[in-house]
Amino acid sequence: MTAQQDIKADTWTVAGRTFTSRLIVGTGKYKSLEENAAAVEASGAEIVTVAVRRVNISDPTQPRLSDFIDPAKVTYLPNTAGCFTAEEAIRTLRLAREAGGWNLVKLEVLGEAKTLYPDMRETLKAAEALAKEGFEPMVYCVDDPIAAKQLEEAGAVAIMPLGAPIGSGLGLQNLVTIRLIVEGANVPVLVDAGVGTASDAAEAMELGCDGVLMNTAIAEAKDPVLMARAMKAAVEAGRLAYLAGRMQKRRYADPSSPLAGLI
């Protein structure tokens, strides 16, 4: 089999839906809907996260996200950004389901505004309730292998630990815990939040993550469309490196040219 064929066959499946792209991108913080759409296109993402917000009733004719990013072509993953209790998150996702008919959702219940760290007590409560209502929650969570197990038991269809705080661009802070989550999970694991540049995305994939979710790293790049391309390449490169299996590390040098036949 050629490398090209391998890449094509390398899909991942979440809650029975199969995707080729392992990069999920957010749709916030862009200068314009046009730029947002161009970045999504360049990223090759098949899933985009979206937020649920009030319609502006004083000006209901404002341009809509769906006019620029077609939900028939790209899977909308409604999120619960800004929710600080299980109750708020569940209410938001019930509305999202009515707005678009989606069961596949991104659950995030935040603990505080400063760090946007997940509140795991509320997150677990919400995940359980949502699963009972027929939702398929992909869950933003702390990078804690035990919490990840508990979420899976509660009905999470994907575990999405943070690499670093949302919007920080600090890169993956704890490679050990992310790897432990990957090794222990029976559902897809995606690093969600913390990616700052392409090497961070590649690093997450090299650990064996099934995908990476990011927003700010692309939206706040000087050239978001170019960064979207970089992220696409990085996720693919990291994935291939993971599949290829990296060499063992050595403490000292090992020559690449033969020692025999030296003049």
Partner: peptide, 10 residues
């Protein structure tokens, strides 16, 4: 009433 739709978000 709450009337909502999808907007850009991460």
């Amino acid at each position: 009433f709450e009337i909502v739709h999808f907007v850009g978000g991460g």
